[in-house]
Amino acid sequence: MVIKVLGSGCANCKKLEANVKEAVKELGIEATIEKVQDFKDIASYGVMRTPALVVDEQVKIAGKVPTVEEIKKYL
């Protein structure tokens, strides 16, 4: 599983990354977590508001920071 956190590196982006790491840890799954900060790459997903969560190349959520429990539902 490949999980991408899309965002410029703002506080919300960092919070999303931390929540993703916690969700992966709690579920005990194998996943690669990548940060995508290049605006061209972010736009290629059709995302206009960050932070965004992408799981296996599918945008799951954009424009807000989901909780650890919400993220677990997408994984």
Rank of each mutant, 00 (worst) to 15 (best):
A18H: 10
P66N: 10
I3M: 10
I3E: 06
G46W: 00
Q58T: 08
L53E: 13
K72T: 05
A23L: 02
V24I: 14
A52L: 05
I42W: 01
V24L: 01
E70G: 07
E22R: 13
I33A: 04
C13N: 05
Y45A: 01
E30N: 12
V20H: 01
V55Y: 04
E69H: 06
P51F: 07
E34G: 03
E69P: 06
G46C: 06
V36E: 02
I3H: 09
R49G: 10
G7H: 08
A62E: 15
K15Q: 13
I29D: 05
F39L: 15
K14A: 09
V65N: 01
A62W: 03
V68G: 08
I71C: 11
A52H: 05
A23T: 08
T32E: 15
L16I: 00
V2D: 15
E70W: 08
A62Y: 11
K72M: 08
F39Y: 13
K4Y: 09
F39W: 12
A43Q: 06
V54L: 02
C10R: 03
C10K: 08
A62D: 09
T50L: 02
E17K: 14
F39M: 15
T67S: 14
E57Q: 15
K4V: 07
A23C: 03
E17D: 11
E34M: 12
I42Q: 05
A52V: 05
G28Y: 06
E57C: 09
K40N: 14
V2P: 11
V5Y: 01
D38W: 00
C13G: 03
A43E: 11
L6N: 03
K60Q: 11
G7P: 13
K35C: 10
G7M: 05
V24N: 04
G7S: 13
E70N: 08
N19I: 01
A52Y: 06
R49M: 15
M1I: 10
R49E: 15
I3S: 07
K64S: 13
Y74V: 10
T50K: 03
C13K: 03
K60V: 04
T50N: 02
M1L: 11
G9T: 02
Y74K: 04
F39D: 14
G9P: 03
L16C: 07
C10P: 05
V24K: 12
E26K: 11
K40G: 14
V5D: 04
I3T: 04
E57A: 15
K35M: 12
L6C: 10
K25R: 15
E69G: 00
I71Y: 01
E69F: 01
T67H: 01
V55S: 03
V59F: 10
Y74D: 07
Y45M: 04
G7T: 08
A11P: 11
L75E: 03
A23K: 02
I33Y: 00
S8Q: 11
E34I: 09
K15S: 02
I42P: 06
A11W: 04
D41P: 09
E17M: 14
V20D: 01
E69M: 01
K25M: 13
N19K: 04
